[in-house]
Amino acid sequence: MIIDLKNEIGKDLIVRLDAEHLFKKLEGNSQKVIMDFSDIDFINRSFAQEYLNRKMVVDYEIEEINVPDVVKNMFNVILEWNGYDLRY
């Protein structure tokens, strides 16, 4: 299953609630999910924190593709703040 975040949410990933809704749509999913970050221009801390928190507790694999530097950098900030030694 591939989710195009630009079409699903928009070019700017801002609202924590959008991340919540995204993962609620995937409840009960058991297959690998590919999150396509193509053409994402901005991500804020709230969305990134919620996305990563939810990603860590799901029972299925999530792979991110076409992740722009702005998203990678924010994910790395969130991971570092939370004491994880992971890099995007």
Rank of each mutant, 00 (worst) to 15 (best):
V67N: 06
V67S: 06
S38D: 03
I14W: 02
E61I: 10
K72H: 04
N29G: 15
L13P: 00
K25P: 12
A48E: 00
Y51Q: 03
M74N: 00
V71C: 01
D36H: 01
L79D: 08
I3M: 06
Y88F: 10
K32A: 14
I14T: 08
D4F: 13
E64D: 13
K32M: 10
E20F: 15
L79E: 14
I78A: 02
V15Y: 15
I9L: 07
E63L: 08
R87N: 14
L22K: 09
Q31S: 11
K32Y: 11
A48S: 02
F23L: 13
K72A: 09
R54F: 03
D36C: 04
N53W: 09
N73E: 11
E27D: 09
G28F: 08
K32G: 11
F37E: 01
L52E: 01
G83I: 09
A19Y: 04
F75Q: 03
E27P: 12
V58D: 05
L5N: 00
A48W: 00
R54Y: 05
I34Q: 05
F47D: 00
H21Y: 13
F42H: 03
V15A: 10
N76E: 03
F23G: 04
V57M: 14
N76M: 07
Y51I: 08
V15W: 14
E80Q: 14
F75V: 05
G28W: 04
V33W: 02
E61R: 03
K25I: 12
